[in-house]
Amino acid sequence: MTAGVVIDVLLGLILVGLATQVAIGKHLFRAIVFYVAFGLAMALIWARLGAPDLALADAAIGAGLTGALMMVAFRRLVEIDPKQSQALVTRGSALAVVLAVLAAGMVATIGLTALSLERQPGDAGLQVLATLQETGLGNPITGVLLVFRGFDTLIEMAVLLTAFIGSRVITTRSRLSVTTVSGFELPLVRTLVAVILPLAVLIGMHLLWIGSDQPGGAFQAGSVLAGSGVLLLLTGTLLPASRSRALVRLALVAGVGALCLLVLAPLLQGDGPMAYLGRGSLLFAETAMMVSIAVTLTLLFAGSPSLKAGSS
């Protein structure tokens, strides 16, 4: 009991310490690095709270990919104008501190008040656990994401696609140099990639496969694969390409498309929209989602509409 509390407090303090560095650290680059560390600490907390799905997702997406995207954006700023990129126009003020303390106090009050109320497990949550057997799934979160509230997930995939299309609107006009991401040619890196890449693909597949019964699923798998995509870009094995290819475009829309099929296909049989079609259909949709997530996030990192093999 007390040991648990000590661990909680320690984890909490670490998280707050890292967040402080992110929020008010002097250098932008340092703040980004601390943000990655913050994401990893967050993953530890999710694990501690008994939410391993979130731990996996936050480590891969929250810390890993958001961090990678921020770093590459930072690097682009430095390339455009090294002097201005870090220019910190901070207006440190007492007012900001007061407002921040007020906001924190408000959130704490709301949260603690909510905790002090007599809390019952949520109806929806209980119903999920009670109904999960009907779907043949073992992981209730996969059940919510793909079966009970699958429509949310469809729109969420559409948001990811929109973010990609939106950044195409912007980056088609600015020529991002190919060298922005490829840079180092160390023999050790090559070997590292040779080891890590197959491992990442294996882990991704594994996460996808077990996701229906255990922690994991399309998001975690997709982001692990996107992580290896980033690695391939960094080592120059993959290069950004400016001509978009049909296969890449198909990969981009596959996730939303597969979920649309999941909604509309049951109508052909006279069932309602998104009537449950069994685990096979979920595996199909999750594979498509994994591919979409991996390709979209890799392309967002590359800042290009397509990829090509590097000259290795």
Binding site: T131, D152, P273
Partner: peptide, 13 residues
Amino acid sequence: TLVFGGWSPPLGI
């Protein structure tokens, strides 16, 4: 009204 997957609220959307 339309309910997705036949899971009526609060379970579904």
